[in-house]
Design a protein around this nucleic acid. Structure first.
Lengths: 242, 242
DNA sequence: CAGTATCCGATGCGATACTG
DNA sequence: CAGTATCGCATCGGATACTG
């Protein structure tokens, strides 16, 4: 039996939604339409075969739209109107985890690429500066298996933010030196940015004005114990908690 | 690899929540604390082995509380405070299904016992009449495999509602004759109680006063296109939709 | 009634290799 | 880059039988 054999709408919805990897695919698409390899980069442990299969299933269920790219091979994957209605569910799952799963994170789960892609996706287009702005991340505390490098760069220049694994050579405006675990916890909302650990382990280096600008770009203002939503304005948090 | 290997709170929460049968176990406990066999009756296709395993996992995760019964063997299973926080998620999954999954229900998913247990759980204790009140359900349209019977009885008498599979012999106050599929759809919110199909296929028989009383007990007033929450007051629907 | 223990089978899923 | 095809295994979970 594939499903649960019940007409209850919770059961029927779970047959679609609560399959392995499916909520995470929807989580990704909540960040906006994406291409196949965008998804694979953010879901590195999911096989391409299964990703294809899930995207097809979700399209068939009316949750995902698949449209051919205007030029070249490949498709654009996005949420339909029905798919968008999963967004609040994803957000509540996120909030639940932030509140209750602080202590059970494992070292090997802290992935700098996933983290920095998350950070990049939160930089609003509208706030990109016209002139180039370069932020360097120095992450320490990486598990030995992942120390291919410890530095990454964001090159913010008008409509794009490029995430570089190799030094792009531009002058650096701000360096953010942080312990990856603390930064991940703060970014994902497990701890507040004003917590002791965050203040101790996340250091901004650069001209005061540039630092302020970097914090504004990344949404890293110092409000205490703020809970972060992965998608959507932080104000929604209060609404959801109420 | 058991989990998703990501520190993202959505991923970590899904490792607990989005496992097979788990959301339905939580759905059941949203109806209040229950004993083991209460759960098996409402989850007839779930093996007892797996139910035990899931309950243990959920207890370990701090979502379910397991307490020994004061008398006799067995335990009482309930949601912890953290578990209660899944209730709005269950409700949103339910609403999503009601809105988008109307057409993909299969005949074999319409189960009179599950349906009538759902109905019974919605009768508020406070509204039980002091004197006995008997409602008979005549459900037609059952798949051949399930025609063990076509009549069931609710015996409402003060603190309890008994669901009988055999005629309890009491005089019947109200008979509800309905097509099981239409009644299930209406009860679960896929269609409104004021829809044509519901009006045609769900018939109340009895003295006008008794019929009104039955409708009040079961919450079957005739409001058009009302969406039903499986748990909680219908008013919440508007709040969730807003 | 309330579970446990054991076994075994399907299938879901990952690994690898391949294609336009 | 954007997938597809094939294979094989591991594990999840259902069936059955058993226990206090």
């Amino acid at each position: 039996m594939p499903g649960y054999g019940q007409f209850c709408p919770v059961a029927k919805t779970c047959e679609l939604f609560a399959e392995r990897w499916t909520p995470l695919v929807i989580r990704e698409l909540c960040g906006g339409p994406a291409q196949f390899n965008d998804l694979t980069r953010r879901l590195p442990l999911m096989s391409k075969t299964l990703l294809t299969q899930r995207l097809r299933e979700l399209e068939h269920a009316g949750i995902v739209s698949i449209t051919a790219k205007p030029t070249g091979p490949g498709h654009i994957y996005g949420l339909t109107a029905a798919g968008e209605e999963f967004r609040p569910i994803i957000e509540m799952l996120s909030l639940w985890g932030q509140r209750h799963l602080r202590s059970i994170l494992k070292p090997e789960e802290f992935d700098p690429i996933f983290l920095l892609l998350s950070v990049r996706s939160q930089i609003p287009r509208s706030s990109h500066p016209a002139e180039r702005f370069v932020i360097c991340f120095e992450l320490r505390g990486l598990p030995n298996s992942k120390v291919a490098s410890r530095r990454w760069w964001f090159v913010v220049v008008h409509p794009e933010v490029e995430l570089c694994v190799k030094d792009p050579g531009h002058p650096i405006d701000v360096t953010i030196a942080a312990d990856i675990e603390t930064f991940s916890r703060a970014w994902m909302g497990y701890i507040g940015l004003a917590d002791d650990a965050a203040h101790r382990d996340i250091v901004f280096q650069g001209m005061p004005q540039a630092v302020e600008r970097a914090k504004a770009l990344l949404g890293l203002h110092d409000r205490a114990r703020e809970r972060r939503l992965i998608y959507g304005p932080p104000d929604m948090v209060d609404a959801l908690h109420a």
